[in-house]
Each structure stands twice: as C-alpha cells, then as structure tokens.
Write a protein that binds this DNA or RNA. Structure first.
Length: 269
DNA sequence: ATGGTTGTCGTACAA
C-alpha cells in the first residue's frame, strides 16, 4: 500500500506559468499532474523545465493558442489507445493514460470541457452546443466502458453542479457553468460511468467549495465569487482508497496566477 | 452598474 497523489490544474498557458509549477510541486508534491489550457503546440512544450521538476514521464496534446492538455508524471505510464477524438474536432481537450503502479494499472483521463460561451442556448450559441455535444459523447462512451475499474477522471469540466459549488445558486442559474441543462448533462456523465465525486467525498455538499475565481473581480478574495469548475472523479472500487484532498487556494494569490487553482486527491493503493 | 481581466496572436477571440 502506498500513497498516490493526483493533481489537476487549469494552468492557462504552460509556458507563461512554468515557474509556478515549482511552487505547486512544493505545496502538493503530486505523483501525477494533469494540466489543462496549456495553450502550447507540442513542438514548443517546455519539456526541459518540467523534467527538471522530476516529472520524467510527459504526454502533451496541444495546439496553437487555445485548449491543450498534458499529463506530467513521476510514475511511468502508457498512452491509452483508441480513445475518441471528441466531436471529431481534434481540439486537444482530452488525454488518457494508464499508470503503471506497483499495485497494478490505473486508467487516468484528463479532460478540458469547453467553457461554452456566454449564451446558454445551443441554437443561438455554437460553443454551448459543442459543450453539450462533447459531454453527450463522453457520457455514451463511458457507459460503454462500464463497469469502470481502477479509473480516475480529472479536469476542468467547466460546470459547477451543486448549489454550493457556486457563490450564489440563484444568481447563477442562467449563467453558463451552472445552468440546469449543464448540471443535468454532467450528472448524466457521472451516472454513465458510475463515477464518485472525490472532492465532495471529503467536503459536505452544504459547504461552499470553489476552484476558480474570475480575473474580472477587483478583489477576488474579498468578493469570493467562486465556482467549482475543476473535478476529480474515481471509479467506485477506489472509493475506499480516498485518503486526503487539497484545494490550493493560495495559488489564486500567486504572482501571475491562473484563474483556476490546483486540486489534489491522495489515494492509498 | 450588463461592467470587469487575462493570454495568445497579432490588434480578434476565447475564457
């Protein structure tokens, strides 16, 4: 039995915030770190700086300017084969790997779900339609994979499903990220894979829990108008392995901070 | 009060 720490962070440019990875590493010491919004084509990915932090195993799936995901790991892994290209867009929103743990293989999915634009209407807003379509595809695909074993799904899912995943349930009901149609979609995805919400495993549903604070607030900390957009899900067989979690809120106050903070879950496997 | 900030790219667009 040993501890496995998996962290996830929407880094909002891996090149700009490469120095912050050292601070994250010092704070959380993750064995595996999943990044979203790397905004970096693969040929420009900062492999040297990341290797210097001790992440010897890296898989990046990036493109110019937008999106992009990566898995940084101290544990060897193989790329999962034959995972879908969601919505056939080639837009670098998912990477799947299989970690080679001493206790056996563990599947890890790193997702960056589309933010979905401003208008919560699939007819009026193609970005919202894309968000719902990607989730519908993922729902159908994970339903086919069931029953999932030794599986973890992390990422910026861009939906805050519970009432206390946002600063004001009432005021955000019409705001993309917390609309009933999105919440339904996310919950359907969770049910399809029989996923267990690892963050709410540790934090009661009645308690406010955020992982993102807008750049647009004058004082993000004083306003505290946050949302829980970043998630860690585990298959039911890993429920008993959940040992600890940390949401690195101080990271929101770092110099040149991302608007998302790193989230970590530790399991005993 | 329908604002506000950030990153990439290149002076627009996505978040």
């Amino acid at each position: 039995m040993s501890a496995l720490r998996i962290a996830t962070w929407n880094i909002n440019s891996v090149r700009l915030r490469l120095p912050l990875l050292a601070d994250l590493d010092a704070a959380l010491r993750p064995d595996v770190l999943c990044l979203q919004e790397t905004k970096c084509p693969d040929e420009l990915f900062p492999h040297e700086g990341i290797r210097a932090l001790g992440f010897e195993h890296v898989m990046a799936r990036g493109m110019k300017g937008y999106n992009g995901v990566a898995v940084l790991s101290r544990i060897p892994f193989t790329a999962r084969a034959n995972d879908p290209d969601w919505c056939m867009k080639g837009d670098c929103r998912h990477v799947g790997v299989t970690l080679a743990l001493p206790s056996g293989p563990l599947d890890l999915h790193n997702f960056y779900v589309p933010a979905g634009g401003d208008i919560p209407d699939r007819e009026a807003n193609p970005k919202f339609a894309h968000k719902l379509d990607l989730i519908a595809e993922a729902t159908a695909w994970f339903a086919q994979q069931a029953p999932l074993r030794r599986s973890v799904l992390v990422g910026d899912l861009n939906i805050a499903p519970l009432e206390h995943d946002v600063w004001s349930h009432k005021q955000l009901l019409d705001v993309v990220s917390h609309t009933p149609i999105e919440v339904e979609a996310l919950q359907g995805w969770m049910r399809a894979g029989d996923w267990h919400d690892a963050l709410r495993h540790f934090v009661p549903a009645e308690q406010k829990l955020y992982t993102w604070w807008s750049y647009r607030a004058k004082d993000w900390e004083a306003a505290d108008r946050g949302r829980r957009l970043d998630h860690v899900w585990v298959s039911q067989d890993l429920r008993g392995a959940l040992a600890r979690h940390e949401i690195l809120k101080p990271a929101r106050g770092w110099e040149k901070a991302s608007d998302h903070v790193p989230v970590m879950v530790e399991m005993t496997l």
